[in-house]
Every structure is written in structure tokens, then in C-alpha cells.
Design a protein around this nucleic acid. Structure first.
Lengths: 197, 197
DNA sequence: GTCTATAGACGGATAGAC
DNA sequence: GTCTATCCGTCTATAGAC
């Protein structure tokens, strides 16, 4: 994402590049990586396939351009952990949902999730994301035995993502975030600090 | 699966058909539908691509042959609902895990889940599987407001599938089924019959 | 900048020899 | 039954005209 503000008037042509990127984002989010074709993206944006290559290079390049998640999980979760374990379940879920419900971020996250499930890149989540990103963050919130509590928390949050955003089962997909916080938050809290066999 | 027992000796050639099917199952489970190619399946089974077609017809046919889920969810869940709402969370989870942990069934289920997440066939789960299969079954177990309780139960079970079987996050993937029943069962019970805002 | 034309690779499917 | 050879379609990617 290059800086787009510069003085003087913008080029007369509409921002074709942005339209291509938006089309790519939507397609990757909906159909996954293998399911989207450069041709389909170009057609959706009303341009020629060659133009897509001209802007973004290879299909892989287009994919990473379409992700562009403007969120650092550790940064956004910092205030959640700073407030301590009390009510952490609700706070965690609230910030989590606020990110996922952001229409500017959602397509990128969806595309990411879709591609992670489709390929055998599950190892990336298992050995990368969970232990190095979310693990340490959550570990500071749990009472004990993080190695069993963190995965349980993760399982419920993964299920929420898949049910609400990927499958969009009603009424989960339409449910206001605060309702979900009230209903699922206590479960997360239980996994974090409750009595567990 | 045709009956394989008949008197007299089996044909001298090893059961190539079964090997092809096994290779297909593994590939579909690991790489999803789009990710597996007939050629790769044939190569993994040590045979010619044309032979795969000869046995199974199109790639779609091969896929449904590789699924071959020998389980009717409604049938297997019948005893769970018959015993009533008390302790239903644990019972539900136990039968659920016993099916998923069955090595004869798991690859088919995994392939199914992978393909459902990859394509935009989410509608199939949302409008088909959940409301017509699992919905009615679970609805008879909940205390009230099935339209909010059933999706919550579904979200936790989906999360368990993805975390334990698709991503295989440790130690969730290695955890004995009974440990999971003891830890997650109460949450399901809470979603089924507990106090919910 | 935008499009046309096409090269090159890959995968599904079929026909037919052995 | 099993394999060779091949057709046909789709896709990425590039070269080059306008």
C-alpha cells in the first residue's frame, strides 16, 4: 500500500488499481486461493487480465497484496491482557469480534483462513501462529496449565470464526457482537480461569 | 464398497482398486478437492491415471466414492437424545469423538470438511446439514430457544473439529477423548440447558 | 496505461492397443 | 484389466501493438 496522498490532482482515470484489489479481496475471501482466477478478478473489476499482472505481478503477489491485514494481534491484545484475568473472557471476545466485524479487515482475514484450511498449511497455524502469537498472549491470562487452557480457548474462538464468518450460520452471523460476548464470553472465562478436570 | 468375500481364490493381482481409493481418500483429506489431481492419486497408488477413470469415472465420482461415510448422524445420535437432556453434553461429545476418531471414517470426514471450507459450498452446511440434520436432533435436547442454543453448540463442536483434526493443535490432537469429554462436555451442557442471556 | 494475442504448463477425460 | 497416446479445456504469464 503506497502512500496515496500527494498534492495536485489525481490522474483522471478512476482508481482502477484499487478496484482490482477490491475484486481480488472479495474473490479470495469467498473462493479461496485456488478458487479465484486472475481472469475472474479482472472480469469482476471490469478490466483486462493482463492489467492485473501489470499492477500486481504474479498471482501470489496479488494474494499477499489482497491480505494486507492492518492489525498486529499482539498490539491489539495488549490492553486485554493488561487488565488482568478478571473478565478477560469478555474483553478478549469483544476486541476479537471488533476486528473481525471491521469490513475493511474481514475479507483479508477470511481469505487467510480459507487458504489455511484448504491447503495443508495447517502446520503454519499449529507451529507458527498459535504458539508464537496467541499462545504467549493468552498464557499470561490463564490461571494455570496454559498448555491445556489455551487450546481450549482457541477451539471455541476458531469455532466462532468458522460458524459466524465462514459458514455464516444464522443467527450467529447476524447476532450483535455484544450478545455473543454475553453468551460466549463466560465460556472463554471458564476455559481461562475456571475449574477444569 | 462391494462385498469382498466370495469363495474361491481372489484374483492374483493385488486389490488395485482399493489402493487407488485409499490414495484418493488420503489426498482429498489432506489437500481438499481442488488440491488433489487424478494424476497425483494415480501416481501415489502406483498406477496409471487412466485406470482411475476406468474404475471411478469422473473426478466427482471419485470424490463421493472416497467419502463413503458409513454413518448416519441421525441414527448414531438417536441414543444420545433418547436419554434426555441430563448429561447430554458429555454423551453428545463422546459419540461425536468416537466417530471422528475412527480411523476408517476420519479421512472421509476430513475431506468433506476441507472441501466445504474451501469452496463457497458453505451454504450446503448452513442451509442443509445444520438445519435439517443436526438442528432437529439437538433441538430436542435444549431447554428453550433452540435457535440460539443450537448454533452455540455447533460453534464449539466445529471449533473442536478444526482444532483437533484439521489443524491438529497440540495437545488437543493427542488428548484422550475422555479428557475432552470432561473438559468440553460441561460447556456443551451449558449451551444446551444452562442460563443464557 | 490498456488491451490483443499467444506461449507454455497442467489437468481431466477418452480411445484404443496389448 | 492395465497402460499408451492424445484431445481438449483452462489457467498463468508474457510480449508487444495501440
Amino acid at each position: 500500500m503506497t502512500a496515496r496522498a500527494s498534492r495536485g490532482r489525481r490522474p483522471g482515470a478512476p482508481d482502477t488499481r484499487a478496484e482490482v484489489l477490491a475484486a481480488a479481496r472479495a474473490s479470495f475471501a469467498e473462493k479461496g486461493f485456488r478458487g479465484t482466477t486472475i481472469r475472474a478478478v479482472a472480469s469482476a473489476a471490469g478490466v483486462d487480465p493482463a492489467l492485473v499482472h501489470h499492477y500486481f505481478g504474479t498471482k501470489d503477489d496479488l494474494f499477499v497484496a489482497a491480505l494486507e491485514i492492518p492489525v498486529d494481534p499482539r498490539e491489539i491484545l495488549a490492553p486485554v491482557v493488561a487488565a488482568g484475568p478478571d473478565g478477560a473472557g469478555e474483553r478478549l471476545l469483544r476486541t476479537f469480534l471488533s476486528v473481525w466485524d471491521d469490513p475493511a479487515i474481514q475479507p483479508g482475514l477470511l481469505a487467510l483462513v480459507r487458504s489455511l484450511m484448504a491447503d495443508d498449511s495447517a502446520g503454519l497455524v499449529r507451529d507458527g501462529f498459535i504458539p508464537v502469537v496467541v499462545g504467549p498472549v493468552l498464557a499470561s491470562l490463564v490461571r494455570d496449565r496454559p498448555e491445556v487452557r489455551v487450546p481450549l480457548v482457541a477451539s471455541q474462538m476458531i469455532g466462532l470464526i468458522v460458524a459466524r464468518y465462514v459458514i455464516a450460520v444464522p443467527p450467529l452471523a447476524q447476532m450483535p457482537a455484544e450478545d455473543l460476548v454475553a453468551r460466549v464470553g463466560p465460556v472463554l472465562q471458564h476455559y481461562l480461569t475456571g475449574d477444569l478436570p
